[in-house]
């Protein structure tokens, strides 16, 4: 029984080894070698001493942060309303549907909408404000990036809200809390797990966005993702590209750890209890 179970795990382990572990090791190896294949830490020194890279890193974090905040502000109310609607499955489908469409296609659709002769500028002209430069601005980059990430934020939050026992908000109202107090003291804290999952699902991929920075942001927004693409495809400096990749991965782990603190805390409490008993 045990053996057969292990046997079925083989494809999974092969997959992980080939497509997760091996690439990671290769990136790590690349980041510590120079053009001739000799060991070096020069790439990391360059990264650490160059203000350009520092700025890029901060830029990445800043934009990922903005995208996450915007997505969260849209998604939490949306998920909350969704959980109260009648045809929830249909609405969910409508929210999930855009994620089935290729990212590039959606980006091009937005280019069409936002361009000088696009529908949005037509409308702006119609109401007398336009035309404006919308494409290739921070605004359009944040808007499109948030649009693309929203389903990944709504779904975990929606799940958390649906799983919340309706007796809990009722109990809060019963004990004298207003609707807003109930939300602040009960509903939101108890759906925080969904928010954290959503933040992970949005913030981490947003750190390394590069296609949108080019197509929608018009290279005005330079992030670590853009830098990696640049190093691998244009300047062919694989060592430097890998170094930034490693740093990006480290950042992601840090974010994961920051948003995963709950279980750990819980265990500490239990341990304290044991020592006091």
């Amino acid at each position: 029984m045990k053996k057969s179970k292990q046997f079925f795990m083989v494809p999974y382990f092969l997959w992980i080894a080939l497509f997760v572990v091996a690439p990671l090791l290769l990136i790590l190896y690349q980041s510590f070698t120079d053009g001739q294949g000799h060991f070096t830490v020069r790439n990391y020194l360059t990264y650490g001493s160059s203000s350009v890279y520092l700025k890029m890193s901060l830029n990445s974090l800043w934009y990922a942060f903005l995208i996450t905040v915007i997505t969260l502000l849209v998604s939490y109310p949306a998920a909350y309303i969704l959980s109260r609607l009648k045809h929830q499955q249909l609405w969910l489908l409508l929210i999930i549907l855009p994620t089935w469409i290729n990212l590039l296609l959606k980006a091009y659709a937005f280019i069409g909408l936002f361009s000088r002769a696009g529908a949005v500028n037509h409308f702006l002209m119609f109401i007398g404000i336009g035309p404006k430069q919308i494409l290739f601005s921070d605004f359009s980059f944040l808007l499109v990036a948030s649009y693309i990430e929203i389903p990944f934020m709504i779904l975990p939050i929606y799940n958390a809200i649906v799983q919340l026992d309706p007796a809990l908000p009722n109990a809060s109202r019963d004990l004298g809390a207003s609707p807003w107090q109930t939300f602040r003291l009960v509903t939101f804290p108890l759906t925080l797990s969904g928010v954290k999952a959503g933040v992970q699902a949005v913030f981490i991929p947003s750190l390394s966005l590069f296609m949108l920075t080019r197509l929608i942001g018009g290279n005005r927004v330079i992030t670590l993702g853009t830098a990696i693409e640049e190093h691998f495809l244009t300047t062919m400096n694989w060592g430097m590209g890998s170094t930034i990749g490693v740093i990006l991965i480290v950042m992601m782990f840090v974010i994961m750890m920051l948003t995963n603190d709950r279980k750990k805390k819980r265990r500490e409490v239990l341990d304290d209890e044991k020592t006091t008993l």
Binding site: N170, R173, D174
Partner: peptide, 17 residues
């Protein structure tokens, strides 16, 4: 609304936070 009524409830599954 329930928060302004002078009654309190003990719920079936307790509904403790």
């Amino acid at each position: 609304p329930p928060n302004q009524r002078k009654v309190n409830t003990v719920f079936q599954n307790y509904a403790l936070f």
